[in-house]
Computed example of a mutant assay.
Amino acid sequence: MSTSGMSPSGVYTKKQLVAMEFDDRMIERMRASGDLTRLRPWWYATRLHDATVAAAVRDGGILTCVDALRFHGMWTPPGHRASLHLRRSKNKSGKHTACRVSVGAERTAADAVDPVPIALKYASGCLPVEEWIAVADSYINSTGTGAADLRVGMGTISVRLSHAVDRADAKSQSGTESIARVRLKSEGYDVVVQPSIEGVGHTDLRIGKLLIECDSFMYHASRDDYERDHHRDRRALVDGWLTIRLTYDDIVYGWDAVLADIREITGRDRHRARTPKLTTMIEESVLRTAREGL
């Protein structure tokens, strides 16, 4: 028996089982013993299957969109667990509303879970654009692929989605950073991603001499992390930089207040380099970042 086609979801098509050298008699024997469960015609689940994947298949589809992204280990924004995210062909129905795309709908499925690019295509119908871009950032950053590779993987896409791909940035290091970047750029700010600052290292975002650090939900895993970041902030302030450190809740739930504070700073031009020393400081950061290939 071949195991080369084993699925991490524990859900298989009949074709996949046959490719692993399971014949009809073996399949029926495994069903009788409880080692295989028939989810729907031509689809089966092993004992150790992923329950969410099995639910999508049992409901006449396959897992896609944010649920598939989560299955593959991608960063996903909060608040999208209320319903099952699946896609199914037009001739099938079920109790869950299927995720859809306006252009380039997939007509076949080789596996119970869509690959990340296809899941991202379907997620464009369920996620706000800033959150979609954040997930795309996470994908191209973690896999070392590029926007061109993502386009190829998604196949035919809408003009709207194509524009969203153009706004992805592989340099982004976290979902919260991505969301903040997209929102600030939408407000017209000239945002630099992962600038290199002498004596400080890399920060998340920069607007002029204003440094913006975007902490994730569990960012400070230790006291050492906490102490290190406060030392960095102090050094940046001494050298002439301004620093705002944003929490996960600030970005996800309190953005209006954050934006008001940034507008207060930039509205008074406190983020601008007004002296030759500050101008040189920013120019050196630009050069350091370019040299480091970021």
Rank of each mutant, 00 (worst) to 15 (best):
residue 1 M to K: 12
residue 1 M to T: 11
residue 7 S to Y: 02
residue 8 P to S: 07
residue 13 T to V: 04
residue 14 K to N: 10
residue 14 K to G: 08
residue 14 K to C: 06
residue 15 K to S: 10
residue 17 L to A: 04
residue 17 L to Y: 04
residue 21 E to K: 10
residue 24 D to E: 02
residue 27 I to Y: 08
residue 29 R to M: 09
residue 32 A to V: 03
residue 34 G to N: 08
residue 37 T to F: 09
residue 39 L to A: 04
residue 42 W to A: 14
residue 42 W to D: 15
residue 44 Y to R: 02
residue 44 Y to S: 03
residue 47 R to L: 14
residue 47 R to D: 10
residue 50 D to A: 06
residue 52 T to W: 05
residue 58 R to F: 10
residue 59 D to R: 00
residue 61 G to H: 06
residue 62 I to Q: 11
residue 62 I to D: 08
residue 62 I to T: 13
residue 67 D to C: 07
residue 68 A to D: 10
residue 69 L to I: 03
residue 72 H to D: 04
residue 76 T to D: 11
residue 77 P to E: 11
residue 79 G to F: 05
residue 81 R to E: 12
residue 82 A to F: 11
residue 83 S to L: 12
residue 86 L to E: 10
residue 87 R to A: 09
residue 88 R to M: 03
residue 89 S to P: 15
residue 90 K to A: 14
residue 92 K to T: 14
residue 93 S to E: 05
residue 95 K to G: 09
residue 98 A to V: 03
residue 98 A to R: 04
residue 99 C to D: 07
residue 100 R to T: 15
residue 101 V to T: 06
residue 103 V to W: 07
residue 109 A to S: 02
residue 111 D to C: 09
residue 113 V to Q: 06
residue 115 P to E: 07
residue 118 I to Y: 01
residue 119 A to L: 11
residue 121 K to Y: 01
residue 121 K to W: 02
residue 124 S to E: 08
residue 125 G to M: 00
residue 128 P to C: 08
residue 129 V to R: 13
residue 132 W to M: 04
residue 132 W to H: 03
residue 133 I to T: 04
residue 134 A to C: 07
residue 138 S to C: 15
residue 141 N to K: 05
residue 141 N to Q: 08
residue 143 T to D: 04
residue 144 G to K: 02
residue 145 T to K: 12
residue 148 A to S: 13
residue 154 M to F: 00
residue 156 T to D: 14
residue 160 R to D: 13
residue 160 R to P: 10
residue 161 L to T: 10
residue 162 S to C: 13
residue 164 A to K: 02
residue 165 V to S: 05
residue 167 R to Y: 00
residue 168 A to G: 02
residue 175 G to P: 11
residue 177 E to P: 02
residue 179 I to G: 01
residue 180 A to Q: 00
residue 185 K to I: 14
residue 192 V to L: 08
residue 193 V to K: 03
residue 195 P to D: 15
residue 195 P to E: 14
residue 196 S to V: 15
residue 197 I to T: 08
residue 204 D to P: 05
residue 205 L to D: 08
residue 208 G to V: 01
residue 212 I to K: 06
residue 214 C to P: 10
residue 219 Y to F: 13
residue 220 H to A: 04
residue 229 D to Y: 03
residue 232 R to I: 14
residue 233 D to E: 09
residue 233 D to V: 02
residue 234 R to I: 15
residue 236 A to H: 00
residue 238 V to D: 14
residue 238 V to S: 11
residue 240 G to R: 07
residue 249 D to N: 13
residue 250 D to C: 00
residue 261 D to M: 15
residue 262 I to S: 05
residue 262 I to P: 06
residue 267 G to E: 04
residue 267 G to R: 01
residue 272 R to G: 09
residue 272 R to S: 12
residue 275 T to S: 07
residue 275 T to L: 03
residue 278 L to M: 14
residue 279 T to E: 15
residue 279 T to S: 12
residue 280 T to H: 08
residue 284 E to P: 12
residue 284 E to D: 15
residue 288 R to F: 09
residue 290 A to T: 10
residue 290 A to S: 12
residue 291 R to K: 15
residue 292 E to N: 14
residue 293 G to K: 05
residue 293 G to W: 06
residue 294 L to M: 14
